[in-house]
């Protein structure tokens, strides 16, 4: 099968105006992923499904990922004067990266027996601009999985036929799989050697007495 770089080039050649970003995966390079803007996601997905050399007709897995606001350290090479002469110096700069939600699709081809190709969509932030395009019209298997991502992460899938909560109850108002989710405080003391659980119990009983 083509490498992710080749697939990126094919998609960009076939669909003018579409830009994909390659997100490298150092652990498993063959599973580097293609980041697509939500506006083009359906067209790209359709191309990946119908292209005769790819035929990614099987969307195996849909995942939400929550990325919090973070400071990213990057190593940049700059030229500057050191001890009178200009040298190339590597320096680390810190950059604030706003948080976002991400939806990851793992695509396989049943017809050609290859895969996976990893496709990603990102929201603009984690609060109000959380829309991405639903790929349920392209792969039916996204139907329940996108509902699950909506339920647990709060990503809104534009164009989903039946976007409701799926695992939590309908009245529930939070997104429990987000990294900053705060659980309801119903801890109780239990004899356990795990420090973090004892800490939670102490926070729950601040006076140290009975509840």
């Amino acid at each position: 099968m083509d490498s992710p770089e080749q697939i990126k080039a094919r998609v960009e050649a076939a669909l003018p105006g579409v830009q994909l970003e390659l997100r490298l995966n150092p652990a498993v390079p063959a599973e580097s992923s293609l980041v697509v803007a939500p506006a083009h996601a359906v067209a790209v997905a359709r191309f990946l499904r119908d292209d005769p050399a790819l035929r990614l007709d099987y969307c195996s897995n849909v995942t939400g990922v929550d990325w919090l606001d973070a400071t990213v350290k990057e190593k940049v090479k700059t030229r500057r004067l050191v001890a009178g002469e200009e040298q190339e110096v590597e320096e680390t700069i810190e950059r604030k990266r706003p948080g976002y939600l991400e939806v990851v699709y793992h695509l396989y081809s049943v017809a050609l027996r290859h895969g996976p190709v990893v496709l990603r969509q990102r929201t603009r932030n984690r609060f109000e601009a959380v829309q991405v395009a639903s790929l349920t019209p392209v792969w039916r298997s996204c139907e329940f999985q996108e509902r699950e991502v909506f339920d647990l992460f709060g990503v809104v899938f534009h164009g989903h036929p039946d976007l409701r909560r799926i695992l939590m109850w309908d009245q529930f108002q939070d997104f429990p799989m987000r990294k900053d989710y705060v659980e309801p405080d119903d801890y109780e003391y239990e004899p356990t050697p795990h420090d973090e659980i004892l800490d939670k119990a102490r926070r729950h009983y601040p006076t140290g007495g009975t509840a």
Partner: peptide, 8 residues
């Protein structure tokens, strides 16, 4: 149901 007391 009442939670078990936290031993001090």
């Amino acid at each position: 149901w009442r939670p078990a007391p936290l031993p001090r």
